[in-house]
Simulated assay, not measured.
Amino acid sequence: MSILLFLLDTLFFVLVACALARAWMNQQRIHMAVQPGPFVMAVTNWLVQPLRRAMPASMKQSRWDWASLLAAVVLSLVYGVVAVLLLSLASFASPSGAMWVTGALLLAVKHLVRTVLQGLMLLLLAYAVLSWVQPHSPVMGTLERLSAPILRPLRRVVPLVGGVDLSVLIAIVLLQVGLMVLG
């Protein structure tokens, strides 16, 4: 059963992370023709496009991509329901309706927050590694634009140490602490 839960968790991490990445890229006005845009669009179009058509016009004009954010929430809720169902099947217990709904909602919220924290950590790790290994890579500009809003507040506070920007390391440590608190 733990293998099945791991596979479920991995599948929904990718789906929710792609929906959140799509929303973040749209909010930062990054053209979707640049990687990871085509991948994110291919993974999420099946859910985001119908949600976008159902949204009111006022939400479509917003700077935020509400359809992608809603897709991330819906996917997290589906994850919560399926995970509670699998866990109740594994324990041969059928929780009451209120416990079932509460468990599914708590798992969904935890999964969504964990996906945000892990996704940001992956973004910052990719940015840090590429800045050292291949700073002129074509994807470096996209990574820099995606990570700048996260790093900007830290860069105001943390000075360069020997010409090295430690804000990425501090952000990763803070995200890791957030994951520990969540766990």
Rank of each mutant, 00 (worst) to 15 (best):
M1I: 14
S2C: 06
L4A: 14
F6Q: 10
L8H: 00
T10Q: 09
V14K: 05
L15H: 01
C18D: 05
A21S: 12
R22S: 03
R22A: 01
R22I: 02
R22Y: 01
W24T: 11
W24C: 09
N26Y: 03
Q27H: 10
I30T: 05
A33I: 15
V34W: 13
V40I: 14
V40K: 09
M41Q: 10
A42G: 02
W46M: 04
L47D: 07
V48K: 05
Q49A: 02
P50W: 13
P50M: 11
L51H: 04
A54R: 13
M55Y: 03
A57H: 06
M59N: 10
K60Y: 11
S62D: 11
S62P: 05
W64D: 12
A67F: 11
A71Q: 10
V74A: 10
V74M: 04
L75P: 00
L77V: 09
L77Y: 00
V78W: 09
V81I: 14
L85E: 12
L89I: 10
F92Q: 12
S94G: 13
S96H: 10
G97Q: 13
L105N: 02
A108M: 06
V109Y: 09
V109S: 10
K110E: 05
L112T: 00
L112W: 07
V113C: 04
V113Q: 01
T115G: 03
V116H: 04
Q118C: 14
G119V: 06
G119P: 00
G119M: 06
L120Q: 06
L120Y: 03
L123M: 02
L124F: 08
L125D: 01
Y127S: 05
P138Q: 11
P138K: 12
P138R: 13
G141M: 04
A148D: 08
A148N: 03
L151S: 01
R152V: 14
R156P: 01
V157D: 00
P159T: 06
L160E: 15
V161W: 11
G162D: 04
G163A: 12
D165I: 03
L169N: 07
A171W: 05
A171L: 00
I172A: 07
I172Y: 02
Q176C: 01
V177D: 06
L179V: 15
